[in-house]
Simulated scan of single mutants.
Amino acid sequence: MKKIVITGAANGIGKATAIACVEAGYYVIAADKDRLGLQALQARLPTHRLETHLADFSQPQVYQSFIGDLYDRHRHNALEALVNNAGIYHGKSVYDYSDEEMEEIWAVNLKSLVYLSKDFARRESGATHLRSIVNVTSVAGEVGSMDALYGATKAGVIGLTKAGVIGLTKANAWNFAPRIRVNAVSPGLIRDTSIHDRIPEPRLKEYERQEIIKAPIQPDGVADVILFLLSEKSRHLTGKVIAVDNGAYPR
C-alpha cells in the first residue's frame, strides 16, 4: 500500500486531502499539533489506513527529525509522497507581530518545509518508482496579503523573486530530479478553514469579487488537485504551481 505523509492534516485542506487519499487507496500518515482534530480524523477513517502523529512543526527538534523518525523509529521502509500543508495565518499587520509569532510563522510556513522536503528526498532518491512532493502555498504568495509575514512565507514556497519564479518548489524540482517530482498548489479563497475565518472582511470581499467562477471553493476542491499531483496522471509534471482560485487574479 502506498504511503503518503500529510502535515497539517487535522483540519481544512489537510483533512480533506487525508480523506481523499484514503478513499483513493493510500495509507496516510497524518501529522498535526491539533490533538482533537487528529482524533476526529481517526474516528472517521479506517485504522488500518491511517496513522497519526502529534507534531508541532514550529519546533526545530520536530521538523528536523520527523521524516527520519518515520523510517528509523516507526519502521516505514518507503514513503510514496509528502504533502507539505502545515501553515499559520494570523491575518494581522506586520506591526502587530510579536517576535515569538514571527519566529513561529517562519518556522512552520517555510523552514519546516525545507527540512521535511530534503529529508524525504534524501531517503527516497534511490526509489525505483517516481516519488512526489506537493507544497501547499497560497495566492497570497503571488499577489500579496495584508498579513505581510504570511504573504512573504508563502512567496518563499513558490519562490517569487525579482528574477521570477525560481524559488523553493522549482529549485527542489531540479535538486530532487529525476526520481522525485515537486509541485505546488496555490489556493485562493477556501471556505470552511481556520484561515478563512481570520481574513478581514474587506479582503474577503475583494477575493470574492475577483473570482470568475462563483461556486465557493471548499477544501475538498483543493484536495482533488493535490490527489492529481500525487497520482500517475501527473507523472510528467514537476516544478509547477497550480492555482486553485476560481480564476481570480489572472497571472
Rank of each mutant, 00 (worst) to 15 (best):
M1R: 14
M1C: 04
M1N: 11
K2F: 03
K2V: 10
I4A: 01
N11M: 06
N11D: 07
G12P: 01
G14Y: 12
K15Q: 11
T17I: 05
A18N: 13
Y26G: 01
Y27A: 03
I29M: 07
I29E: 01
A30K: 12
A30E: 13
A31V: 01
D32M: 10
L36V: 15
G37F: 12
Q39E: 15
Q39R: 13
A40T: 12
L41N: 12
L41F: 09
R44K: 14
R44L: 12
P46S: 07
P46R: 11
P46A: 05
T47C: 00
H48W: 05
R49S: 14
L50H: 11
E51W: 08
E51P: 00
T52P: 00
H53C: 06
L54D: 07
A55R: 15
F57W: 03
F57N: 03
S58G: 09
S58V: 14
Q61T: 15
V62L: 01
V62N: 02
Q64L: 05
I67D: 02
G68V: 14
D69F: 01
Y71V: 15
H76T: 14
H76V: 15
E80V: 05
A81T: 09
N84R: 04
A86W: 09
I88R: 05
I88Y: 06
S93G: 04
V94N: 00
V94K: 00
D96R: 13
M102S: 03
M102E: 08
M102G: 05
E103A: 04
E103T: 15
A107P: 10
N109M: 04
K111L: 13
K111W: 08
K111D: 06
L113R: 10
V114H: 09
S117E: 11
K118W: 07
K118V: 14
D119S: 12
R122Q: 09
E124A: 06
S125W: 07
L130A: 09
I133W: 02
I133R: 04
N135A: 09
N135L: 13
G141K: 12
G141N: 10
V143S: 02
V143Q: 08
G144K: 10
S145A: 04
S145L: 06
D147Q: 06
A148P: 02
L149Q: 10
Y150K: 08
G151P: 04
G151L: 08
K154I: 04
G156H: 10
I158C: 01
G159E: 09
A163G: 05
V165I: 13
I166W: 02
I166G: 00
K170D: 03
K170R: 14
W174M: 13
F176D: 09
R179I: 14
R181F: 11
A184R: 14
V185P: 02
G188M: 11
R191Y: 15
D192K: 13
T193L: 00
S194G: 08
D197C: 00
E201V: 15
P202L: 11
P202F: 12
K205I: 13
R209M: 07
E211S: 06
K214C: 04
I217E: 03
A223D: 05
V225S: 00
V225D: 02
L230C: 01
L230D: 04
L230W: 01
S231H: 02
S231D: 02
K233N: 11
T238W: 01
K240Q: 14
I242Q: 00
A243V: 09
A243N: 08
A243C: 03
D245V: 14
N246M: 10
N246D: 11
G247I: 15
Y249N: 08
Y249R: 07
